[in-house]
Simulated assay, not measured.
Amino acid sequence: MDIRLPPEVLAKLQMNNTEDDPKPLTRISRRASLSDIGFGKLETYVKLDKLGEGTYATVFKGRSKLTENLVALKEIRLEHEEGAPCTAIREVSLLKNLKHANIVTLHDIIHTNYSLTLVFEYLDSDLKQYLDNCGSLMSMHNVKIFMFQLLRGLSYCHHRKVLHRDLKPQNLLINEKGELKLADFGLARAKSVPTKTYSNEVVTLWYRPPDVLLGSTEYSTPIDMWGVGCILYEMATGRPMFPGSTVKEELHLIFRLLGTPTEETWPGITSNNEFKAYGFPQYRAQPLKSQIPRLDSEGIDLLNSLLLYEDKKRISADEGLRHPYFKSLGERIHTLPENVSIFTFKEIQLQKDPGYRGSIFHQTGRGRNRRQSIF
């Protein structure tokens, strides 16, 4: 692909950088010089590899001619009559107001007659790929660092009354520094939890809380906290916690591990018509420690407080950040400004994962076949 600047832009740059003024262009003057391309224009970005495609949206790896930085271009076609535009507009309206080190940055929005292109910062991996790449055997120290970043981004969202509602490893993007960022806010604030994506793929049930599986539409911040618990388990064990393919199977897997709910563990459950119709056996709760031997007692306590049937009793993202599980990261980590990475502190560093197979932190050029989340 030709990523050279257009001749007229080059000429303008050369005029502004004559022998009388040999100093390199500052970022501000460079941006002024490049006003011919500028923000909000498709010409500003060069498409590189295609990262993924659905019925309504295609995601490309790209490069900005303004900054020379890599970007992810989420191109949403507008000729379809349903689905994409309202979901895209929802994502835009949310992300342009969310500025945090652990939330993917929306750099630019380009609207044409045929498409809406969202320009995001580019991250070359996600948590699913990271797990695959370390043979599903992560360092428990790294589990803690990723978990803290997830709660940090989520706490920021929840303070602004934004629910993510589609947390899963594929929607947690990771860059070469180990920074984890929440992505794909297309379902946030939607009025119902859809069962299909843009491309008619079935939405995974694995991270969905039992109250939603049983028909609850009273969504608030605890809807995300159940998914956080499932993700903590998956990082610590290398396998999904509740990989059900139907609602009934998903509930069955949950009840088999955590115990079939009772009035004591979930007040009102015995009068839920959907719950009664399934007629689940009475399972006893299994101790989670036996399922996750590598997770310490504080980590087990945090997990138990996330996976509560009664949604209002689940620990909040804010409370989670202050849980004793994170004590080893030090107190300074709680003083960081919202837009500053936790890796600013030298004592916060990722360790080599025991199942390491050549990770994003030791290998360049990964992500050529990567499918940046588009749904």
Rank of each mutant, 00 (worst) to 15 (best):
L336P: 12
K74V: 03
G358V: 04
A57R: 02
I300V: 08
Y45F: 10
P85R: 11
D318R: 14
C86F: 06
D211G: 00
S216E: 01
D301H: 15
K168P: 03
K47F: 07
L336E: 03
F255I: 01
D311P: 13
T204A: 13
M235K: 02
L154H: 07
L154W: 11
Q14W: 05
T260Q: 06
K177G: 04
R368E: 04
S155H: 15
K12Y: 10
E81I: 01
G135L: 08
F345C: 01
L306V: 13
Y130H: 08
G367Q: 07
S35M: 09
S115R: 13
K177N: 06
K181W: 04
I231M: 11
G229S: 06
L302F: 05
N102M: 01
S199V: 00
K128D: 06
F345P: 03
I269N: 04
R332D: 12
Q282M: 06
N113P: 05
I254V: 05
K346S: 13
L151R: 11
A277D: 07
L303C: 07
V247D: 14
I348T: 11
S220W: 09
E234K: 15
I28T: 10
S64N: 07
A188L: 12
D184L: 10
R152V: 04
L13T: 01
A285I: 00
K96D: 00
E319T: 10
D21S: 09
Y207L: 08
Q282D: 08
